[in-house]
Write a protein that binds this DNA or RNA. Structure first.
Length: 275
DNA sequence: TTTTTTTCCTGACAGC
DNA sequence: TGCTGTCAGGAAAAAA
């Protein structure tokens, strides 16, 4: 499940490999992949467009072309591959872009990923698909103060807050668990009970963990890989997520798995206090 | 308005 | 073997 670090890894890899290349032909085999228009309009518009600039907003990948902004959300299992030859097995490949001397292929087993195409704009935050996307987790405007102001009157649990992209963008299920473990907070704690000091901790660890994961090239759990098959190594550093029935690295108690906001959630009940 | 639930998808896996 | 049911999950839509 790509979160900000994985998206950044994919983006960097693609930038190194396809920046300056021009789309000669575009094919889309799964119509619902394209949110902004019919497939034929989408494919026709891309012909002759060159990849100019690469950017990330939360978990969204942004490609600035000559005349358009192409936005991609990988959701759970979306992946890009750069291939020398046209792909043989198209079973889970839903889009192929012919870039002249290579093919950029989009694969997504569960078909949750989406692509958006808009006329090019300087103000990326004005794009329709990003209207509910808040400040990126690494944005300097994201501080404990900011988080506290956003949540002090909300009833939602703190994990749901961290997953809410309109408050802080880029955090997903895996890192939410890790951030709350490091902050010593039970994910089920109500937002309005979270102190200013706790908010400082949450933001501090959120930035630290996300930046650490970016350096390591993103976490890999289940099927996630970045383009070109580059896989991250950060999973070795995960402390609670996916560690059901294992010992807490801090206190030795058993880590439990439960559901919070419909999401699989890992907690050390000894270290993480419910507020 | 805010919060919760449902929906979208397929493959892996458990149980019979 | 082959079937059925459950689970995983980001975000939008629908319901509460």
């Amino acid at each position: 499940m790509p979160e900000a670090p994985e998206v950044q890894t994919v983006l960097s890899t693609l930038e190194r490999n396809i920046k300056g290349l021009t789309i000669e032909k575009a094919e889309v085999f799964y119509p619902k992949l394209i949110e902004t228009s019919d497939v034929s309009i989408f494919c026709d518009a891309l012909i002759g467009q060159t990849f100019q600039r690469f950017y990330r907003i939360g978990k969204y990948l942004g490609f600035e072309l000559d005349d358009y902004d192409l936005i991609v959300h990988l959701r759970m299992e979306g992946k890009f591959y750069i291939m020398r030859d046209y792909p043989e097995n198209l079973k889970h490949i839903h889009a192929v872009f012919n870039l002249g001397d290579c093919y950029l292929c989009y694969e997504d087993t569960r078909k949750f990923g989406r692509m958006y195409l808009y006329p090019k704009t300087e103000d990326k935050s004005s794009l329709a698909c990003l209207k509910n996307v808040g400040l990126d987790v690494l944005d300097e405007k994201v501080t404990g103060e900011y988080l506290y102001h956003q949540i002090h009157s909300k009833k939602m649990n703190i994990k749901a807050i961290l997953l809410d992209q309109s408050i802080i963008a880029g955090i997903g299920n895996i890192y939410a668990d890790e951030i709350l473990f490091r902050s010593k907070l039970d994910p089920r704690s109500r937002a309005y009970r979270i102190s200013k000091k706790d908010c400082d901790n949450i933001v501090y660890y959120a930035k630290k963990i996300i930046q650490g994961a970016m350096k390591a090239g993103g976490t890999t759990i289940r099927s996630y890989t970045s383009s070109l098959g580059v896989t991250g190594r950060f999973q070795l550093q995960l402390r609670v997520h996916g560690k059901e029935d294992q010992m807490c690295p801090e206190c030795g108690n058993t880590i439990i798995k439960t559901k919070v906001s419909q999401r699989g959630t890992y907690i050390c009940r000894n270290c993480q206090k419910r507020k």
